[in-house]
C-alpha cells in the first residue's frame, strides 16, 4: 500500500518537473513579455501544483502533506493575479508587443 502511494507520488513529481521545465524553456524561447508570461504562468502553476500534490501523496495526512495541499490552493489563486498585474503594468509603461502580433485592441481603446 505504502509503496504504491510512493510510486504514484513520484509520477506526479516527475510530471510536475517536466511541465516546470517547459515553462522555463518558454521563458527563454518566446519573443516578448506577454508570451513569456503565458508559458511561465500556465506551466509553472500546474507543474508546481503537481509537485506539491506528489509531496502530499508521499507524506499523507501529516502536517507536511496538508500544508502542501493548502499551498496548491494559494498558488492557483494568486499566480493568475500576478500575471495580470505584470502584463497590465508592462502595457501601461509602453512595452511593445512582438512585431508579428496580429492586433492590439487594448492600445486602440486607450487612445
Amino acid at each position: 500500500m505504502n509503496s504504491i502511494n510512493e510510486i504514484i507520488a513520484y509520477i506526479f513529481i516527475a510530471i510536475g518537473l517536466a511541465f516546470d521545465f517547459f515553462g522555463c524553456l518558454g521563458l527563454v524561447r518566446f519573443p516578448d513579455i506577454y508570451n513569456r508570461l503565458h508559458s511561465s504562468i500556465k506551466c509553472v502553476t500546474l507543474g508546481t501544483s503537481s509537485i506539491l500534490f506528489g509531496l502530499f501523496l508521499y507524506k499523507g495526512f501529516t502536517h507536511t502533506g496538508v500544508k502542501a495541499l493548502l499551498c496548491i490552493g494559494f498558488l492557483v489563486l494568486t499566480a493568475p493575479v500576478s500575471a495580470h498585474v505584470l502584463a497590465r503594468s508592462a502595457h501601461k509603461s509602453g512595452v511593445k508587443l512582438w512585431e508579428k502580433s496580429v492586433c492590439d485592441k487594448y492600445a486602440e481603446d486607450k487612445k
Binding site: 516578448d32 506577454y34 508570451n35 508587443l97 508579428k100 502580433s101 492586433c103 492590439d104 485592441k105 487594448y106
Partner: peptide, 9 residues
C-alpha cells in the same frame, strides 16, 4: 514557434 499573438477584446 507557431503563434499569432495579439490582444483582443
Amino acid at each position: 514557434l507557431p503563434m499569432r499573438p495579439g490582444i483582443v477584446k
